[in-house]
Simulated scan of single mutants.
Amino acid sequence: MRTSDLPRAGGALLALGSLLPLAAAAELELRPYAEARAYYDSNVYSFSGRDEALARNGDDQLSDRVMRGLAGLQADYGFSRQSLGLTAEGRRLIYDHFSQLDHNEHLVALAYKGRYGEDVSSRLYASQERRMASFADRDTTALTLERERLGGGELGFAPGDDWRVELGARVRRLLSPLPGLPDFTLAENGATAGLRYVDGGPASFGLATEYLKGRFDGTPDQTRFDQYTAQLDARYEISGLTRMNGRLGYTRRNERNSARADVSTVTGSIGVQRNLSGVTSVELNAFRNVESYLVGAQSVIDTGVRAALNWQRSLVTVSTGVQWHRSDFQIEPRREDRITQAFFHVNLAPRRWLDVQPFVDYRNRSSNIASERYHGVVAGLGLRVQFGGAEVAR
């Protein structure tokens, strides 16, 4: 599927939504929303220190105060056992000191979900987002706006009482200009297939496979890669109190470029969610994946763990946690990063239509390459209002 096909996919979703409900009652739900967020960023450019800031930016200041405003609309159109969803959002970011970074962003997303009888389900989706690229791995302090387009679909069906087949396909296009490479693009096309044994009990087991074909365009060395993954899949749930899911398998990535760097490694993930009480829950996750390192147009192996604690009452939700992961870059000279992240988020809902959201995020990256080290804190307050939710009969 080419990038130019994504608008057609969105149009197909809309056409599908207009044809299917002709013989069924339908309901339209509209939810406009807006958000204002003011926060302090202690290290806007992800510099290793004031000396690097002065050398690269001509200014030794690291921090800034940022205002972020957004307005959007969520619309859901339900008919029979199917639904169409639309999200459209515009954003504006304003920097107090680094005013050259002021910019606009947007997001548009479409999704279709459907069930056909008791054994068949499907999902289609398409989205486009325009956003500021992260400075964490860039050798420039100039504002870069990247565009990401996603599209794909999933189909699940049960050929027998105890088996379920899950198929999927996706396409991704990320245009993210780099210094001297204004047309730099990552393109990925993927397909997944899985077979799962489900007997109605608390456990299910299966096999999941994925094929991913990608390329980095707009570079002197047109890097191509083929990635194959096969994993055993297991899920377990006890009375809604404990949920476990895990995958364990193997990934091989074949690079096709002048500096060939094939990757073969064990990959997978495991996650546990446990409700400690009616208001408190914990989450524990571990993962190992092969990803695309955008700036280097190469592969990176990410290995990490995450722990989170959630506490929720009728008007207050508190989420806090920490994540650590290591990134092993498959390039020369070898680079290894260790990243520690922590967060503390609160959501207060004094009114049904109003959320008050104080938050603190911390990030620290150590590396065997001194210039890639940095740490920073982002802390602030957000106000979100959302209206609607009433169903409009059609």
Rank of each mutant, 00 (worst) to 15 (best):
L186H: 04
R313I: 02
G321E: 02
R50Q: 09
Y197N: 09
F225L: 07
R288A: 04
R37Q: 14
R81T: 15
E332M: 08
N347Q: 10
E29F: 11
P350F: 00
D233C: 09
V290G: 04
L294S: 13
A307Q: 05
P21I: 04
R81K: 14
G249L: 11
I238Y: 00
V300L: 05
Y228Q: 07
Y211W: 12
V165I: 14
Q74S: 06
E146I: 05
W311H: 08
G376Y: 05
V290Q: 07
S314C: 04
E105A: 09
D302F: 11
R334Q: 14
W324V: 04
R260A: 12
R365H: 11
E52R: 09
G114A: 10
Q273D: 00
L124W: 06
L232A: 15
D162S: 14
L110P: 00
L167F: 02
R131D: 15
F216H: 01
A26K: 02
Q341E: 14
T265Y: 05
P182K: 10
E237F: 06
F47T: 00
A342R: 04
D226Y: 02
G151L: 01
I339T: 13
L232H: 09
E89S: 10
T320K: 00
Y40D: 15
G11I: 02
E255C: 09
Y77F: 15
G249T: 13
R384I: 00
L86P: 07
W353F: 08
R215A: 15
I369N: 07
G218R: 04
R252N: 14
F47V: 01
R149C: 03
T219D: 11
A111R: 11
L195N: 04
R352F: 12
F359Q: 00
E336G: 08
T280D: 09
R235Y: 00
A36N: 13
F387H: 12
Q298D: 13
G271A: 05
A191V: 15
M67Q: 08
Q330L: 07
A38K: 10
L248N: 05
G200A: 13
R172Y: 06
G49V: 04
V385W: 01
A25D: 14
G153N: 06
F98N: 03
A109F: 01
G278F: 06
T144D: 05
L383G: 02
R92H: 06
R247N: 12
A34Y: 04
Y211V: 15
L284T: 03
E291Q: 10
S277N: 03
L195A: 10
R164P: 01
S314L: 13
Y211P: 03
V266Q: 03
L20P: 03
T219I: 09
S83G: 12
R123Y: 08
R384P: 01
F343V: 08
R363K: 13
L155T: 00
Q222K: 15
Q323N: 06
G376L: 11
T251V: 02
R92K: 06
I369E: 09
A379P: 06
R224S: 14
